[in-house]
């Protein structure tokens, strides 16, 4: 369980995250949505200890993220931010193999190699395994980073806009993969998403933020409604139901 208590983050007096408390049970896909600047990415970075909070506490299964040793957390929680600028010339396989670092410390076992093979296969990266990252397209690189994080095989997987740079085919494949990771392996996948319809179709639970606060949370049928969308984004939307899934139309 991820237990966020009263998190506030200030930058030079500007409040970006404003007293957020949230408890996310283990298992399932959870999406964080909200307008630009609502504080989603900041909150995700604080939960994953990449950013210090101004006040408040975060506990992962009872472990305080600010005091628990980094290597212990790295076996329980993984995080991928957006815009991963990497200067190093690593091959896709090298990068994915580093996902095993928290477990193997560089000495790969047969078990580690199995994880690496699976991650490459799930993300359709086998033909690219020997290529250097700087020879890939943006979408291929994004998949390689996600493969690294999945290879880390942690209970909690946090991803900031994982669908960045992906075409429709790979975006759908990615969301299905997250669903499967949660259903078949019991993992907890927390995503920051811009596309509310992907959030609607694939999440167990949606958390909506506005101006640094959590304003709504619940299952898709509670969140994907014209009222909530108006409140969160300030746009008028129609919501349609199709085969049990709720789709918001807000294009006009």
């Amino acid at each position: 369980m991820i237990d966020v208590k009263n998190i506030t983050k200030r930058y030079n007096g500007t409040v970006v995250v404003d007293g957020v408390s949230l408890s996310l049970p283990a298992g399932g896909v959870i999406s964080l949505i909200g307008a630009n600047g609502a504080g989603k990415s900041t909150l995700l970075s604080i939960i994953s200890r990449l950013l210090p909070m101004s006040s408040g506490t975060v506990e992962i299964d009872g472990l305080d993220v600010t005091t628990t040793p980094g290597e212990v957390l790295a076996r329980r929680l993984s995080i991928l931010r957006q815009d991963n600028q990497i200067m190093s010339r690593l091959t896709v396989e090298d990068l994915v193999a580093f996902g095993r670092y928290p477990h193997s410390k560089g000495r790969l076992t047969e078990d580690d190699r199995g994880h690496i093979r699976n991650a490459l296969r799930y993300l359709d990266l086998e033909p690219l395994a020997g290529r250097f990252l700087d020879e890939l397209s943006g979408g291929q690189r994004q998949r390689a980073f996600i493969a690294m994080v999945l290879c880390q095989d942690t209970e909690y997987i946090l991803l900031d806009e994982p669908l960045n740079n992906l075409d429709v085919k790979h975006a759908v494949a990615m969301m299905k993969l997250f669903r499967r990771t949660a259903d078949a392996f019991g993992k907890t996948v927390v995503l920051v998403l811009h596309d509310i319809n992907f959030a609607s179709c694939y999440s167990d639970r949606i958390v909506a933020m506005r101006d640094g606060r959590v304003v709504h949370q619940g299952p898709p049928e509670v969140i994907i409604t014209p009222e909530v969308i108006r409140d969160v984004y300030g746009v008028e939307a129609q919501v349609m139901e199709n085969a049990g899934q709720r789709i918001a139309l807000y294009y006009q």
Partner: peptide, 16 residues
């Protein structure tokens, strides 16, 4: 090598 991937990736992989 991990440090060369930047502070965030290094922290994610449990490296100080």
């Amino acid at each position: 090598t991990v440090a060369g991937m930047g502070r965030d990736v290094a922290t994610n992989l449990g490296i100080d």
